[in-house]
Amino acid sequence: MKNYQILRIIVAIFVGTVVGLSVTIGTILPAILAIIIGAMISYIYKKNTNEIIEDERITKVSEKASRIAIVLFSISIAFIGMFLIMLRNEYPDFTQAGFTLSYASVALLTLYYIFYWYYNKKYGS
């Protein structure tokens, strides 16, 4: 577990440095390549290692954190979208952004419940 954490820190430093330099020089290709290379290194190491990287507790905490993050983000963008739509008379330029956020919220929650239904059927009752 310790070696994987060290590798993740090194990969994060590498990706962050390359992305920062890409922004500075104004080109996106090195940033995309750095992200892909970092993800590949992390995936290959995780696949080829014998050390225990995740246990049930980490998986359960990750599931709960992911669920609450999705729900809170969906609710937040739904309210922001609704607020922007309500301001359409004063700020008509933001109306489209409001509709976009509202539809994105609906799409995200729809995807969440589709996947919830699928995995509940696959692993659940």
Rank of each mutant, 00 (worst) to 15 (best):
Y113T: 10
G98L: 01
F79P: 03
L84Y: 07
I80Y: 11
P92C: 00
D93P: 08
F94M: 08
Y112V: 03
M82F: 12
Y103A: 12
F83P: 05
A97E: 06
Y113N: 04
I80M: 07
Y103H: 07
S125M: 13
Y103M: 09
M82Q: 15
L109K: 03
L108W: 11
F115H: 06
N89L: 11
Y116L: 02
F79N: 00
L109V: 00
D93G: 11
T100I: 15
N89H: 14
S102N: 15
T95N: 10
E90W: 08
S125D: 15
A107K: 12
L101I: 01
T100F: 13
I85F: 05
R88G: 05
Y113S: 04
Y91H: 08
Y119W: 01
M86L: 14
E90H: 12
G98W: 02
F94Y: 09
I85Q: 12
Y123Q: 00
R88M: 14
S102P: 11
L87K: 03
R88A: 15
L101A: 04
M82G: 09
W117K: 10
Y118V: 05
N120R: 14
E90F: 12
D93H: 10
Y118N: 08
I85R: 14
T95H: 11
G81C: 01
L109F: 01
S125I: 11
N89Y: 15
T95A: 14
Y112R: 01
G81N: 01
W117Y: 15
F94E: 03
A78L: 05
P92K: 06
F79C: 09
G124D: 07
L111I: 06
I80N: 05
M82T: 15
W117R: 05
G81Q: 03
A104L: 14
Q96S: 12
L84K: 12
L84V: 00
S105M: 00
N120S: 11
L87H: 07
I85S: 11
D93W: 12
T95K: 11
N120F: 15
L111F: 04
L87D: 09
